[in-house]
Write a protein that binds this DNA or RNA. Structure first.
Length: 654
RNA sequence: GCCGACGUAGCUCAGCUGGUAGAGCACUUCACUCGUAAUGAAGGGGUCCGGGGUUCGAGUCCCCGCGUCGGCUCCA
């Protein structure tokens, strides 16, 4: 058969030729460097005969092939890890190991009474290194199901047995599973789809990183296995660089930055709820103000609704049945009450308390509502996952033919918001979940409406089957934190159900009652989470308008304090967040402390400035940018704040 | 909630195999009055997360609880 190389050359190979043959035919250097071969986009082991048919586009993967090549040796490393564990921990049962972004993992069931922690890693790594040095070939073998089952039953590897049984059970009727592939390296045989590099020695550098728990089959009703995470690279240098990147990301952890900047803290007297220090509260309030102002310009109106409601409200909305375990419930004079975990039922109730004409629609209600959710203890994570938070929450009540325009408006609003911070986001459309309320017909209409809104704006998105809210499908907007974890920011959810349950109505042009549609939306998600994301995104260096402290005045000597005070007072009167550092310390010291706090502007004032009514401007990172008249500085910073400028570089130059 | 690790001064952390606590920074006071990333000295500050237990004696060992961290499950 004739194959096509990436450079356009053609390569003719006899039937039955392997990837190794292909590499050798191209050149001896490539034959040595080859790790695997890609045929029409599918990667194969070098030792396997090349598939025939298809277009025959082939590409030899080598160490220089990037992520695809790394995936191979990370998968290899997972096998070597399991091999070492079987040798070092008799009785261990292995389940699943796989390459993932930036590394690999393997899930194991350790014998009773045996635990694994990071102190055990050096010994395991040493054993892994022996197997890598031994340059064990990975040998693939396709064996009948019965043979594989016998093998793993005999070895007491019940997880592998279950995996094989499920492979057979879940195979489509027209393509039954009769054989499974096994990969052997050294004495270790693993059930595995492959592909692998030719030998273990291709793993040039690796490291075990952490140990964690993971449910078998991802099912919280099943056994918790021990998961070990690790990574592998083609050189020690690349591995070291990767570890350094992780360390830098840890420096940008919002919890660390929040502490360092004096913005917020947590206490065990209220787990999952932040205490906001004045600096952090200022940031919080700036964001609330931003959503209020942007909403006002887009036809939103502000509402306020209660914190605690009788359980009947939650029964009407359906939350009581689905989320009762996740609400803070309390009793009050024999009434069961619950703290609101979301604003929608309150807003629906509010809507129902006044008559509405079709002329009033869409009604865009906004409330920075305070919410409490009883999140399981193990899920809390700094500001990113909390029990008490405030959402920039809106509910749009509209007619069915207004849906598309409203959804488009919400998405546009979202992008306008994120642009202020240069945040890169991605969209996901989540469709009907198994546990839901409402008829399939309503769901069909809702999902179609969201899809056409996305299509209308020409946006790219992925689909999350079954991940919708229990009352309607949603478009979610996600972002990634400093360690690559994904967090949801915004959401736009379409809901026919809540209006139904609350019996909402408006009077149409025909003077008859009609049911409105409800669109739930939040753009920052929660202010807490958004601040966490922003801190990591900006490495703690928030734009001036958002900075906890915008200006600090640094008198050189005590005799400049009164000038400093007058400067501070003038700026404070303009709502600029400003402090005066009148400690009896050296300027050097005051500057250092201000730099550590990442204060965007430092105003150094001494005899010269005092005499001329100027300020010596120092910008965070940029350093001394020269003296300007105080008026001039105040005018410029006010401008930066008023326009919510993203950057202030050169702010004090002409 | 589940698995594992961790919890010592406001913060970051040290404290070997059990012998009743230490550093740096921060804070207070004093001296210094300083020109762009740490002036010096002195001082105050701890229910060693909480509760039980073992022991002559527990920060240290064991058990339970709480919290935090890394994951898993969940996330209206």
């Amino acid at each position: 058969m004739e194959y096509l190389l990436p450079n356009g050359d053609r390569l003719s190979l006899p039937d039955g030729a392997t990837g190794a043959d292909a590499a050798a035919a191209i050149g001896p250097g490539l034959a040595r460097a080859a790790l695997a071969i890609k045929v029409d986009g599918v990667t194969y082991d070098l030792a396997r005969p090349l598939p025939t048919g298809g277009e025959g586009r082939i590409e030899i993967l080598t160490e220089r092939s990037g992520e695809e090549a790394l995936e191979l040796i990370r998968h290899d490393a997972a096998h070597v890890f399991a091999e070492a564990m079987l040798e070092l921990y008799p009785g261990v049962q292995i389940s699943i190991g796989a390459p993932i972004e930036n590394g690999f993992y393997y899930d194991l069931d350790l014998p009773d009474g045996v635990t694994l922690n990071e102190e055990d890693f050096p010994a395991i790594e040493a054993r892994m290194r022996e197997h890598i040095e031994a340059d064990e070939p990975f040998v693939r073998e396709d064996v009948p199901v019965a043979v594989a089952l016998d093998r793993y039953r005999g070895a007491g590897q019940s997880y592998k047995v279950e995996l094989i049984e499920d492979l057979v059970k879940n195979a489509p009727a027209d393509a039954p599973v009769e054989t499974v592939s096994l990969y052997t390296n050294g004495d270790f045989v693993d059930l595995c789809r492959g592909p692998h590099a030719p030998t273990t020695k291709r793993i040039r550098a690796f490291k075990l990183q952490s140990v964690a728990g993971a449910y078998w089959r991802g099912d919280s009703n099943r056994k918790m296995l021990t998961r070990v995470y690790g990574t592998a690279f083609f050189s020690q240098r690349e591995l070291d660089e990767h570890l350094e990147r992780l360390e830098r990301a840890r420096q940008n952890d919002h919890r660390r930055l929040g502490q360092q900047l004096g913005m917020f803290a947590f206490s065990e007297v209220s787990p999952g709820a932040a205490f906001w220090f004045p600096g952090g509260a200022a940031v919080f309030n700036e964001l609330v103000r931003l959503s209020r102002e942007m909403g006002r310009d887009r036809g939103y109106v502000e509402a306020k609704t209660p914190q605690v409601y009788d359980s009947s409200l939650w029964k009407t909305s359906g939350h009581w049945d689905k989320y009762d375990a996740n609400m803070f419930v309390t009793e009050y004079e024999e009434q069961q009450m619950a703290l609101k975990p979301m604003n929608c039922p309150g807003h629906a109730k509010l809507f129902s308390m006044q008559p509405h004409s079709y002329r009033d629609l869409p009604l865009r209600l906004w409330e920075p509502g305070l919410l409490h959710r009883r999140e399981p203890s193990g899920t809390l994570h700094g500001l990113l996952r909390v029990r008490h938070f405030a959402q920039d929450d809106s509910h749009i009540f509209c007619t069915e033919d207004q849906i598309q325009e409203e959804v488009a408006g919400v998405l546009q609003f979202a992008f306008d918001t994120y642009r202020l911070f240069e945040l890169d986001v991605r969209l996901e459309l989540s469709t009907r979940p198994e546990q839901r309320i409402g008829s399939d017909e309503l769901w069909d209409r809702s999902e179609a409406a969201l899809e056409s809104a996305l299509a209308g704006l020409g946006l790219e998105y992925t689909i999350n089957e079954g991940d919708g809210a229990f009352y309607g499908p949603k478009i979610d907007i996600h972002m990634t934190d400093s360690l690559g974890r994904s967090w949801q920011l915004g959401t736009c959810q379409l809901d026919y159900n809540m209006p139904e349950r609350f019996g909402l109505a408006y009077t149409g042009a025909d003077n008859a009652e009609h049911r409105p549609v409800m669109i739930h939306r939040a753009l920052m998600g929660s202010y807490e989470r958004f601040i966490g994301i922003l801190l990591e995104h900006f490495g703690g260096e928030l734009p001036v308008w958002l900075a906890p402290l915008q200006v600090i005045v640094l008198p050189i000597a005590d005799r400049h304090n009164s000038y400093g005070r007058s400067l501070r007072d003038r700026m404070a009167a303009l709502d600029i967040r400003v402090e005066l550092d009148d400690r009896t310390e050296s300027v050097g010291r005051k500057i250092r402390d201000a730099e550590v706090r990442k204060v965007p502007f430092m105003l150094v004032i001494g005899d010269r400035e005092q005499a001329s009514g100027e300020v010596g401007v120092r910008e965070h990172r940029a350093g001394d940018v020269g003296a300007v008249p105080a008026e001039e500085f105040i005018r410029r910073i006010s401008e930066l704040i008023a326009t919510r400028a993203l950057r202030h570089d050169r702010a004090s130059e002409g």
